[in-house]
Design a protein around this nucleic acid. Structure first.
Lengths: 138, 138
DNA sequence: GTTGTTGCAAATACTTTGCAACTAT
DNA sequence: ATAGTTGCAAAGTATTTGCAACAAC
């Protein structure tokens, strides 16, 4: 899937116009593989040729998350972190409590087990949040 | 473990004084088995004989969470939810996206699997956040 | 030209904090 | 008496929103 296309498609679907600001927010989120908060994304865009406001950053992230192009995550401090949700790239996060390092992981068995647990209660999983706060083994 | 004792012990350990406000916040959190936010806890205490301020509610919750008497959880809207952390009562949460109902669950296999995954990366799990957002199976 | 979008600053929502009055020891 | 605690209201932090100027169609 071409990302430029997916953005325009999503905007069309939502009845929204294609703008340079929206493209640049999406580009910026894709550009960095790190999990960043809205302010970092905003600051990264400042000083580049295309200016955006915080309001537009938040508003664009909103559309992108609604359409599963961006994943929002919460590490427990006030703010949310965002990362581009590329195709076939579901993963959970391990956060080192000492270094703050975020490690992505995926485990098929874990995914299946969650479905099994939900089913036992009469539910199906639509999404999940799974974060392991970890320490290095010496 | 007696809860009155554990509160006084914790306060002593922290070099803090025992007060009616602190006791009443802890009592109120224990009283309800539901997951509530700071405002709900504050409002529940208002209108009772012992008055407390929001500031004291937040400050007390802070001590209680630091000492694992209360567990803080985040469902993704702005606010945090709190629940008493009673002995041997670890569990994760399933949140129904339709009704908002919160179901607690515990699965030994899941716990072990998490440890195994972390170990594979050279880490050990110190705590985890695991929430399944679910829908009823019709 | 019309209607959606942007940026700004003000508003909001939750939580934290400074400080003077108060209370436990 | 002393040092910690409370309540209040102000400040802080992240995010949302109203609105006039502006840009896409």
């Amino acid at each position: 899937m071409n990302n430029k296309e997916s953005l325009t498609e999503v905007l069309k679907k939502e009845g929204l116009r294609y703008t340079l600001q929206r493209q640049s927010v999406w580009d910026e989120i894709k550009r960095s593989k790190k999990h960043r908060d809205a302010e970092e994304i905003y600051q990264a865009l400042r000083g580049k040729n295309i200016g955006v406001s915080r309001a537009t950053v938040y508003r664009t992230i909103d559309v992108l998350t609604k359409n599963k192009m961006v994943q929002k995550m919460d590490v427990g401090d006030g703010k949310s972190l965002y990362e581009a949700q590329l195709d076939n790239d579901h993963h959970d996060h391990m956060i080192c409590v000492d270094s703050g390092k975020i490690i992505e992981f995926f485990d098929e068995e874990l995914e299946l087990l969650q479905d099994k647990i939900a089913k036992k209660y009469g539910y199906k999983v639509v999404r999940h949040v799974h974060q392991l706060f970890v320490k290095r083994i010496i």
